[in-house]
């Protein structure tokens, strides 16, 4: 890679001498993996474009399936958007892990002398970035198409919290799904039943913000999202070792 962060610069400092250095190396390896994913995407654009086109098509389908006129729209906007993101998300998650597996990159990553959890966080943050990018393109499109302003700080916060939990579990399960015979088919089946609390909470909370409900009614949902994010990020961090073990 000619992008400044090469494996050499990452692993040159020896972490054994000072504990602060170990943390630094840890974060630098996470950054390196994110950077690798982003620069790869910048060149091929295959992942983002697939997710984006899929998301727009999904909204198109919802438009005709539910007749999104003004009355219905106000109550289902959050649901339509979150279903779209959930489905588009599985495309991205599958692709991002399949790339690693098919071209033997995963083995390379595992051979690197870094903590396995750094690989997990690198991939998860990369997936989160892609998901948020897609959301940031779909939101204005939806706003223009249906003449609603979705850029409310609360709505954006929920988008972030929801995507965080979704990608944390999604990255873990995607790295399991790619090792199975049915790979792409399996990921949504594994992911959706587990991620339902996120979708429920995100839909209700976003709806609350869009309809201008009082914070006291939205807060429980935000709490669920935060609890989910914390529990599942920690859980994925603990068990990821076993998933990539050869």
């Amino acid at each position: 890679m000619s992008d400044g962060i090469t494996p050499k610069t990452i692993f040159d400092d020896s972490p054994r001498h000072d504990p602060g250095g170990a943390v630094k190396v840890y974060f630098r390896s996470i950054a390196a993996i994110i950077w690798k994913d982003l620069s790869m995407e910048l060149r091929s654009r295959e992942l983002l474009s697939a997710m984006l086109v899929f998301a727009l098509l999904a909204i198109l389908i919802f438009n005709f399936a539910m007749e999104l006129d003004v009355k219905i729209r106000s109550t289902v906007t959050a649901g339509v958007l979150w279903s779209t993101f959930a489905f588009a998300g599985t495309l991205g998650l599958n692709r991002s892990m399949a790339i690693e597996k098919d071209r033997g990159c995963l083995d390379g990553l595992l051979l690197a002398p870094v903590d396995r959890s750094a690989i997990f966080f690198g991939k998860a943050v990369g997936n989160l970035v892609f998901m948020i990018l897609v959301e940031m393109i779909v939101l204005p499109v939806y706003s223009v198409l249906y003449n609603v302003n979705l850029f409310h700080w609360g709505f954006l916060l929920i988008l972030f919290l929801g995507s965080l939990g979704y990608t944390a579990v999604g990255t873990l399960l995607a790295s399991m799904a790619i090792h199975t015979r049915t790979r792409d088919v399996l990921l949504p089946i594994l992911l959706f039943p587990v991620v339902i609390p996120v979708l429920m909470a995100a839909v209700k909370a976003s709806n609350g913000f869009l309809q201008g409900l009082a914070m006291i009614e939205i807060m429980p949902w935000i709490n669920i999202l935060i609890v989910y994010d914390v529990i599942f990020t920690a859980l994925a961090f603990v068990v990821f070792d076993f998933v990539v073990e050869e």
Partner: peptide
């Protein structure tokens, strides 16, 4: 075996949260 174990753990961790959100869903 490893994947089964991981998924069983992830699954059981999600069940209480599912129950909680479903209950909240209904009270509103």
């Amino acid at each position: 075996a490893r994947y089964g174990a991981v998924y069983a753990i992830v699954g059981v961790a999600s069940v209480p949260l599912t129950f909680l959100s479903a209950r909240l869903f209904r009270t509103i």
